[in-house]
Design a protein around this nucleic acid. Structure first.
Lengths: 151, 151
DNA sequence: CAGTATCCCCAGTGATACTG
DNA sequence: CAGTATCACTGGGGATACTG
């Protein structure tokens, strides 16, 4: 691990990309693409299907464990617990335990989590917005696969 | 489970929101959360770690198979192929085969893929921007776990 | 170079049972 | 209600070999 960690994060701009346009201030090239690096780890976390749904659902409200479980269709108790713990550890979700006889635990986004929510909401919005196009693309692809001649 | 999860996995006809609180404005903007629905499927696809990286890396350039493989650190040939095929099928990536002796295949984002790229780029940007906060949150969480009395 | 085909493993996940 | 603990299993994904 001592080997790759000191590798330069910036990619050499020497290699020219034809068709890329003049904007050389390529921000996408600058992120650390090494496996196991911080960004990759976080991406894996926030891009997790359950994390995504939990954050999207929490929005700006507090929800109880069971409420989340009911709202995130298909999630198991275990995965909800695991997901929530990870999000809490990452400082994205705040966990509030109420010392009452029937245990009550509320989950809410932290300010940091709220900023992520905006991005995730955009992703969900994109998905809703383009689902028809994707469905069409899939149909076209499958049709093309059946007709190798490409008609 | 034979339990009362009577929500059908089929496409939701109409805008019925089972169990959705009518008095709550936040739930009103909720998307279709049913497992197996179109949005969930697409989300799982685009939120995939490899898809995410491929789209982020592709940006507006064409890249060859090997280039992508080299840039996406840690991906196996198999997963790159699989990922690229899925993205192509979803209409997010265009695959161009050049009929030359050493086979050459270029991958590029479609216009649809480009719109997704913007969202994904925002997600990556968020990750870069907040990685320190997350690292700090993790450290704090772990420290808290070690000191149970630190209520 | 750019795949496809195969085998195979294990980590993530669900199911179940128990507890505070 | 909100977990924790345990077990069992599946399929995601890596490694390898082969092909056009």
């Amino acid at each position: 691990m001592e080997e790759g960690t000191s590798k330069s994060l910036t990619h050499p701009e020497g290699t020219d990309r034809p068709g890329c346009g003049p904007d050389d201030e390529y921000r996408a090239r600058q992120w650390d693409v090494r496996e196991g690096c911080e960004v990759r780890q976080i991406l894996d976390r926030v891009a997790d299907k359950w994390s995504l749904l939990a954050i999207a659902l929490l929005d700006c409200r507090e929800l109880r464990f069971t409420e989340l479980r009911r709202e995130i269709d298909g999630i198991s108790q275990r995965m909800l617990t695991v997901t929530l713990r990870q999000l809490e550890r990452d400082g994205l979700v705040r966990r509030t335990v109420h010392a009452v006889v029937p245990p009550r635990v509320d989950y809410a986004l932290t300010p940091l989590g709220a900023t992520l929510h905006e991005t995730i909401h955009a992703l969900v919005g994109w998905t809703e917005e383009h689902q028809d196009e994707i469905a069409a693309a899939r149909a076209a692809y499958d049709a093309r696969a059946r007709c190798p001649d490409g008609a």
